[in-house]
Simulated scan of single mutants.
Amino acid sequence: MNQIHPNYSIKIEERTDEILKWLYIGTNLPFWPEFYQYITHDLKTFQAKSILLTEEGNITGHVLLFNENEEILYFGFFGVFNHDKNKIGFLLNKLIEYGKLNKFSKIIGPVNIPTFIYGWGFMEKGSEASIYIGKPINPPIYQELFFHKGFTLKTKELSLEGPVIKLNSKILKSFTLENYEMFHPKSWEEVLSFKPIFFRLNTNLPRDSVITPGTQHLYENYVEFAKTYGGLFLIVFVKYKITGDIIGCFLSIPNPFRKNKSDVYDSCEAFIILLEKEHQGKGLGWLLALFSAKKGWDNNIRYNSTPIEKNVKRSIRMAKKYGLEHKRTHLILEYSI
């Protein structure tokens, strides 16, 4: 599909190897060749496409398109060179046109797959702009133009960040719930065997709170990334002793953009926490977080970032209690067709 404008034209690109060449336009996070295997996995999983914006034959803008069903069109890696207002507006119009032409009912994004590397949302003005895993960086002109075009706020995600506190056993014991047991998988093979459990736990999330679609297809990709840049300490499961069932998990992401003086990765992001509904509201979430922080410290992790939805006030208070500060805000937007 090609469309003409006095100054610009667009092209729909479906070839994965070609899409890989242009995703960098839509992110300020490092786009290293060593990440290609993780990116390619998700592009192929979703059969993603790109809209490429060209000016006089040169590609100057990009937006990624993908979907899990016929209802919602997701977009990611939206960007143009020099953040030119006219080009952003033109590409945005083509994104909306594509959604209408293909009869989607909503457009949601930005969701930059794989999200465990490139994250989601437009960064809000005033946010810290340092390089960190899963934290997109962009000037405010993007969300301003999206809002002007009729997009509305779906989710406001806060990043609470700071040094990892060295926790002593007394603090952990004060949170201990005697009917629950936290544990790390013994091997990466065991981690992979827990995929059905992860998928079952993930179904407990309210539909509106799910940002990344198709998580049942993405588990192995996350595991491979955690294995390459981190370790088993990043993955915690919780067992309910009375039944022996695994009823929760806490997954973190290693941050390959930061190392200590010994050339060791020393930071991470708390990626996802899942609990069975009947075990929620008992403090298990924070017990998992503290257990994970303790194990992180034991494995050289000294800095952590935790994404928390703005309306989850209790979690924000708890994060600040343990020394984390609100450093960044990202906006996930939606458009009803």
Rank of each mutant, 00 (worst) to 15 (best):
N58M: 07
F146Y: 13
S127L: 10
I165M: 12
K227T: 04
G26Q: 12
K85I: 09
L287G: 15
K259L: 12
R302V: 11
F77E: 06
L201R: 10
E224A: 13
T228C: 02
R258Q: 14
K295M: 11
L274H: 03
F35Q: 02
K125A: 14
F116Q: 10
S159W: 06
V223A: 14
E70A: 10
I197H: 02
G109V: 03
V210P: 01
N102Y: 13
N138R: 08
K241I: 13
E56D: 14
L73R: 03
I242A: 14
F183E: 04
L331I: 11
I88Y: 05
N202C: 03
V312D: 03
H5Y: 12
Y36E: 15
E124N: 07
G283A: 08
Y222G: 02
I301K: 11
T40V: 15
P206C: 11
T54F: 13
V111M: 06
I301G: 03
Y229H: 13
I337S: 05
D298Q: 15
Q143H: 05
M182I: 08
G79K: 10
Y142R: 11
W32Y: 09
P114K: 11
P163Q: 11
L101I: 10
I137N: 08
N86I: 12
D17P: 01
P30T: 10
E55T: 00
G79A: 09
M1W: 13
L205N: 13
D84E: 15
F31D: 08
W297Q: 07
I211N: 07
N7F: 15
K261I: 06
F199N: 10
E68L: 03
E124K: 15
Y8H: 10
